[in-house]
Design a binder for these strands. Structure first.
Lengths: 237, 237
DNA sequence: AAACTCAACTTGTATATACAAGTTAACAGG
DNA sequence: CCTGTTAACTTGTATATACAAGTTGAGTTT
């Protein structure tokens, strides 16, 4: 169960970056310094730093040092972009409100993904959120988590308004991949009302299945987007 | 300009994998073998293999060896999935046909992304494709490449029916990231006809900007999708 | 035939060392 | 004041070596 020393260093540096101990844009201690401080060779220090670089936490410059990077957006994060302008570069900040307190329930009988037996048994935590830009509702998001090994989830405080940061903070849960399917469909009565749109207006619908660093632990989302005024942006790296 | 030896080995192994010299599922020569063959230390061999592993070309197993992986799908590749079934796992294979031979033109005046001066000057190559599943048209794709340092592009043969594989094969051009914005909109007369749909049917529209391993070289796409019968799938890693 | 042992392979972790190459600030000379 | 050199730092590339730990198949024992 003992972690190799370079992995220990890797985790240590990572949590120090995430906690703000090393500020964004500042330099990490040099490889020789880390080597001396942690009493491991520079080769092992470099192995830890390579992993951090790969994950996007630092950028290394020969002759300069290891620079702490700005926090990269979560995998598959959606943003809202106006497109009245030709290029529509501007990114708009969204507010998020809960339509209900996150609560534990059973899974819907006709859930949109196939569930394993253990997921079925555990039941799910449902999160219903509405996102607005300029007071206009643009996204209706339903998120479902299997109620497995995330004790007291509903009582925890959210970290920086983000579900995923919260999951990392309390449970060391990280999103490793996203599998999604997208459709355009005509708004039905209910969603049309939420978005203040006429029935039948084209809206976007996305089903998502998030993979995590816990084997066989997945998170599911169903998203409805009003793209009348803002397009949905994603960056894939 | 001389590449370090471990990077040479990395490139060599990569092209050997892509050319099929090392079959999918087979083992690469062991680290010691590679070390002896190329007369570099095992430390350097491991550096090359780590890069290959990171890129997804191989998977390493302690005690076993380095296993050549199945070719991973291109970054942000779209697939078509039926959803008549509840879970809609099935992935459908699409055929692709050219609506016109790829040809060099000037950029449209109201192009959907902002272009640099050098891109403007170079002009663009336009590719118009229609994709079908079960003989039903599902995607209309317009791709635009700056006519810069891709000599004789229009005369080249496509590799495995893929634009991106072709770009790698002839020009070592790789896609490093995708920036996209998605909207749902009502089909206009023209697109409705292409898709055999009624005017006003909700369809999907995606603008894409692909980043590459060539600094400041970008590829642009505009995609219209008929999601009446097949949802658009993406996997983000 | 089945089970166990072991040797020979594989990758993983680790130390110690050397020099090349990029960056920066201090310092000397004009 | 400005300019060029240098010294002291940084990361990058590279060698040589050692042992730990997982895998596999051949050979031995039961």
């Amino acid at each position: 169960m003992k972690l190799p020393r370079y992995k220990q260093l890797h985790q240590r540096l990572k949590s120090d970056i995430l906690s703000g101990h090393y500020a964004e844009g500042s330099l990490l201690p040099s490889e020789n310094t880390l080597s001396a401080q942690h009493k491991i060779t520079r080769v092992m220090v470099r192995q830890a730093l390579s992993a951090l670089e790969q994950e996007g936490y630092i950028a290394r410059r020969q002759g300069k040092g290891s620079i702490v990077c700005a926090q990269q957006p979560a995998l598959g994060l959606l943003s809202f972009r106006g497109f009245s302008e030709v290029l529509g570069e501007t990114e708009h900040s969204a507010t998020s409100q809960f339509l209900s307190k996150p609560h534990a329930t059973t899974w819907s009988k006709d859930f949109f993904f196939d569930l394993s037996v253990s997921e079925q048994k555990a039941g799910c935590i449902t999160i219903e959120r509405l996102r607005k830009v300029d007071d206009q509702p643009v996204m209706l998001e339903f998120t479902y988590l299997p109620n497995l090994n995330i004790p007291n989830f509903c009582d925890k405080k959210w970290v920086q308004g983000s579900l995923f940061r919260m999951l990392y903070w309390y449970y060391q849960l990280e999103i490793t991949n996203v599998d999604q399917r997208i459709r355009a469909l005509a708004a039905e009565a209910e969603t049309a009302e939420q978005f203040h749109l006429d029935m039948g207006t084209p809206i976007l619908h996305i089903h998502r299945k998030y993979g995590t660093n816990r084997p066989n632990y997945f998170i599911y989302s169903s998203l409805y987007c009003n793209t009348e005024h803002y397009a949905i942006g994603t960056i894939i790296k």
